[in-house]
């Protein structure tokens, strides 16, 4: 028997202009799971995310989402299915207002629920609610990160990829960020979390993968990864 995974990545190879970065990545996310993807700078984490989101075309391998092959599909089709990414560097629309940014979150999906989801998002991030008419480019870094996540939530994702959501946030905001991720998880959302905060993300996640030089070198339950001597040496310096 085979259980249909929410996301099933098989032997994915990808790179830029013929320069390979990913050399056959296997990774799965099940419904309702938090899976964390760890790896040092330049390992290929964002490359993987962007190939999953259809910004680039993988050169080999397969991506199945809810059992359907989405390998090489255009980004709009992938968003329409509910695979939504909050990218590294936020990529909000600085020249648009906060409200317009959020509205564009439901450009391709959940458009009919836009006003309802807007209420949900502003309830999660009251600071965004207070700044709806403000140009997004004038928000603080932390607020921009909230906006990026809020924009992602507007599409009612089935799987949300968060690429380093805590990057550049103050320790207090990092705490808030992890609390938010926990809350989204408790509401049933599946998350693929790319993080540099190894300890915190392994506390939050059920499972994890470690990507090095474009290959998965370690994977397993979060508990087993926390105890793994190689991981502790590489990421925790102990």
């Amino acid at each position: 028997m085979s259980v249909v995974r929410l996301l099933d990545v098989r032997g994915l190879r990808a790179g830029y202009d013929g320069v390979p970065v990913l050399h056959g990545v296997d990774l799965q996310v099940d419904a309702g799971e938090i899976v964390t993807l760890l790896g040092s700078n330049g390992a290929g984490k964002s490359t993987l995310n962007n190939n999953l989101s259809g910004l680039f075309q993988p050169s080999a391998g397969q991506v199945l989402f809810e059992g359907e092959d989405i390998t090489g599909a255009p980004s709009m089709g992938i968003v329409a299915r509910g695979l939504v990414q909050v990218p590294e560097g936020r990529r909000i629309f600085p020249n648009l207002t906060v409200l317009e940014n959020l509205e564009l979150g439901s450009y391709r999906r959940a458009r009919g629920h836009c006003s309802r989801n807007l209420e949900c998002v502003t309830a999660i991030f009251p600071r965004l609610g207070e700044r709806l008419p403000q140009a997004a480019g004038t928000l603080s870094g932390g607020e921009q990160q909230m906006l990026a996540i809020g924009r992602g939530l507007m599409a009612e994702p089935r799987l949300l990829i968060l690429d380093e959501p805590s990057l550049g946030l103050s320790p207090l905001l990092v705490e808030e960020m992890f609390a938010l991720i926990r809350r989204l998880h408790e509401e049933g959302l599946a998350l693929l979390l790319v993080e540099q905060n190894v300890v915190q993300s392994l506390e939050l996640a059920q499972r994890g993968y470690v990507l090095e030089n474009g290959r998965i070198v370690l994977s397993g339950t979060a508990a087993s990864l926390r105890e793994d001597p190689a991981l502790r040496r590489a990421y925790l310096g102990v």
Binding site: G54, M76, I78
Partner: peptide, 9 residues
Amino acid sequence: QGARLVGID
């Protein structure tokens, strides 16, 4: 890139 990620063609 942000536009692609919200599904804009």
